[in-house]
Amino acid sequence: MYKLIRLIIKYHFFLLFVFLEIVSILLAVNFNKHHNTVYLSSANSVVGTINSKFNGISTYLHLETKNKELLKQNSDLLNKSISNYLSNIKVFDIKHDSIYSQQYNYIPGRIIQNYIYNKHNYLTIDKGIKNGVVPESGVVCPRGIVGIVSKSSDNFSNVISVLNIDLNISAKIKKNNYFGSLNWDGENINFAKLKEIPFHVDLEIGDTIITSGYSLIFPENILIGTISSFDKVKGGDFYDITVRLSTDFNNINNIYIINNLKKTEILNLTTNND
């Protein structure tokens, strides 16, 4: 025992050093683990009071930068005030003209959700019934077609993406106007299939595919893509055409919703025919 005490006294510097370092490490580890050790932190009332006093001084020193920040935030908020904006519907107001009557109305919007990893892909856009979006409106982006509105709430709409194996779009070959139906095969997001083009049609790789305008959804002449390859299927009557889509579904943000203003008129006519 005496020897032990003598040993401790002899090495007290080193032992105390090790002891204090262990205490520090334990404090450091435990402080991060247990947030309830308030008495050792700046949340402690004494420390907190002192810190807030110091903070008061430094707050005063930073008043100028804080003021600038607040001014900037204010101006940002003012810019966002509703009175600064014309309603999107009014911007693209329906024009009444005695010679031409407008058939399609474009509503600008933005994609807020975009799935491309499934077989049945859908998108969500930030425009809804309040903005004049109705189901079965076409959705296009500056680079090509995107999809068709399936459901609308007051402020948002759900869009069936072109990348949905259940969606068929009426498409035609630009140079000779033969039309067929475009459908995604669920594999590569850059390619879709064009069906129902008969064998006698003259095709070339690179031919442009556009919307036909035969459906009530898309106007004529909206870009879909270009032919990347085609094949004659044995025993069939139609080509197997692969179309490279012009829309990059990985990277779309701004879109337009197309309203067909004459839809009811056309529908009435066709139902009367039956």
């Binding site: 105390l16 490490i25 404090l27 450091a28 580890v29 932190s41 700046s42 402690n44 002192i50 810190n51």
Partner: peptide, 24 residues
């Protein structure tokens, strides 16, 4: 030496929310 170093370290630690680091 060690004890006073520990105390000034822990004092600074408490005020700067770095418990143990300055002390160590």
């Amino acid at each position: 030496l060690l004890v006073s170093a520990f105390f000034i370290g822990i004092t600074v630690d408490i005020f700067s929310n770095t418990i143990g680091l300055h002390a160590f």
